[in-house]
């Protein structure tokens, strides 16, 4: 039983690792809603593979942009443009 608990805790610990990711400027759902459709803002869906295909929620008008191809798509946006990236 002890071994099973240790095993379970290990798997749970790995599962929560993304929560310790570095800080990034965040935008709330309502803030984003108000800005959708305005000029100077682009919404990028950075999910790929199954992270994207398994999800039911996709923001209308969002552009898919893979983290791997950052060098390619980053050139398409000017420095003064606001990019909203979402991954979940």
């Amino acid at each position: 039983m002890k071994r099973l608990l240790v095993l379970m805790s290990f798997f749970l610990f790995i599962g929560t690792l993304p929560a310790f990711a570095a800080d990034a400027p965040l935008i709330s759902k309502d803030e984003l809603k108000a800005k959708i459709g305005t000029t100077g803002i682009s919404i990028l869906d950075v999910r790929s593979g199954r992270d994207w295909s398994s999800s039911e929620f996709k923001i209308k008008g969002a552009i898919r942009a893979s983290g791997k191809d950052y060098d390619k798509w980053s050139k398409d946006y000017s420095r003064d443009q606001t990019l909203v990236l979402y991954c979940a």
Binding site: M8, F11, L12, G15, P18, A88
Partner: peptide, 11 residues
């Protein structure tokens, strides 16, 4: 978290 649930199922 979806990742947490995936690991929970695996465990």
């Amino acid at each position: 978290p979806n990742f947490g649930f995936a690991f929970l199922l695996l465990a």
